[in-house]
């Protein structure tokens, strides 16, 4: 049997499970962003006709999974497992979506790294031969996150320049053990990094060291160089966090030209988000809409997708605790030409 664990934290999926379908559903602000025409569905408002934002977020997650299944010609009953998570207390969006799909469900919490965490676990399950098809979903919603983590939305508070805008959107992937699609070849499971940052309005600088740690470990584990990838893209460091990561990478002697960040790509600088996007939805919708397309077109042959998560809670913030952060990465390769 081929070796499955490489180095300290990296897994090798020699059977190369594939992402056969992916879909992204976003809110109006994301729809007006630079990637606006790539999403599968752009909602007119942030309520989606629901009474609460929480319901709206759940619907976004559900719609993205349904669309991903429909694109592949599958039904929820075809899923062997469903892995999902979001930012709300007790991951209620995922729980209600799993109730709708009625598939065997494992709830995940990795904050904004949840999509990458879900892909890692889906890869493990498929590589292990425990199933044929797995659905992975995540969602976030600006207004549900604001009221849970910061202030009521209508409070006239000023957002500092380091603040990021939580992406309103849901993203889903369908992974299959056999098939054609974007290949999942490796996953690197991250460790918690806590650099003593406690400002919940500055998650970018809290998460950058976690991203660095995972990228570094990944390259060492596989004996690869940055240049082996067409793109190394982090989840939601935002403009400030991305700048910091580049600085940290440079200090360690890595080239930084191929680094990018979903939180930087998702909004236009004049959309008044300050430091860019964040949230589970951020990396998920950029992956589902933008990165998947680039991989399918062959513009990217191989990318390293690093989901970054700030694992704080509203209570830990009030108690002045520092923010533990994590980053999980997966290697995605363009479909082989057959």
């Amino acid at each position: 049997m081929a070796q499955k664990k490489m180095g300290k934290q990296t897994l090798q999926f020699s059977s190369a499970p594939v992402i056969t379908s992916a879909a992204a559903v976003v809110g109006p602000k994301e729809g007006q962003g630079p990637l606006g025409d790539k999403y599968d569905m752009v909602c007119d408002d942030t309520y989606l006709g629901e009474k609460t934002w929480e319901n709206a977020e759940q619907k976004m997650m559900q719609y993205s999974m349904e669309l991903a299944l429909e694109k592949r010609g599958l039904l929820p009953a075809d899923l062997d497992f469903y892995l999902a998570g979001d930012l709300l207390n007790q991951i209620i969006s995922a729980n209600y979506t799993a109730r709708f799909l009625n598939a065997p469900f494992l709830g995940l919490y990795g904050a904004c790294s949840t999509m990458a965490e879900g892909l890692c676990l889906a890869g493990i399950l498929l590589e292990g031969g425990f199933g044929e098809r797995i659905g992975v979903s995540v969602s976030s919603h600006h207004d549900t996150a604001e009221r849970q983590f910061r202030y009521p939305t209508e409070l006239g508070a000023q957002r500092p320049m380091t603040a990021q805008w939580t992406v309103t959107g849901g993203g889903s992937c369908v992974l299959e053990r056999i098939g054609t699609g974007v290949k999942l070849t490796h996953a690197t499971i991250g460790k918690i990094k806590d650099m003593g940052v406690s400002n919940s309005n500055d998650l970018g600088s809290a998460m950058a060291p976690a991203a660095l740690d995972t990228i570094k470990t990944h390259l060492e584990d596989l004996g690869r160089k940055v240049d082996d990838y067409d793109l190394i893209i982090t989840g939601d460091l935002g403009i400030f966090g991305h700048t910091l990561l580049k600085e940290l990478m440079q200090k360690e002697g890595y080239p930084v030209e191929r680094l990018s960040d979903c939180g930087v790509l998702i909004y236009d600088p004049n959309q008044d988000t300050h430091s860019g996007g964040s949230g589970c939805g951020c990396s998920a919708v950029v992956l589902a809409a933008h990165l998947m397309e680039k991989l399918h077109k062959g513009e990217y042959q191989r990318i390293f997708f690093v989901g970054t998560g700030a694992l704080l809670s509203p209570i830990s913030v009030f108690q002045g605790e520092t923010i533990p952060c994590i980053a999980h990465g997966v290697v995605l390769e363009a479909p082989s030409n057959e």
Partner: peptide, 13 residues
Amino acid sequence: YQSTALRLAPKQT
């Protein structure tokens, strides 16, 4: 690390 972050932080207007 925090002093690096502080140095690169976007300036408040």
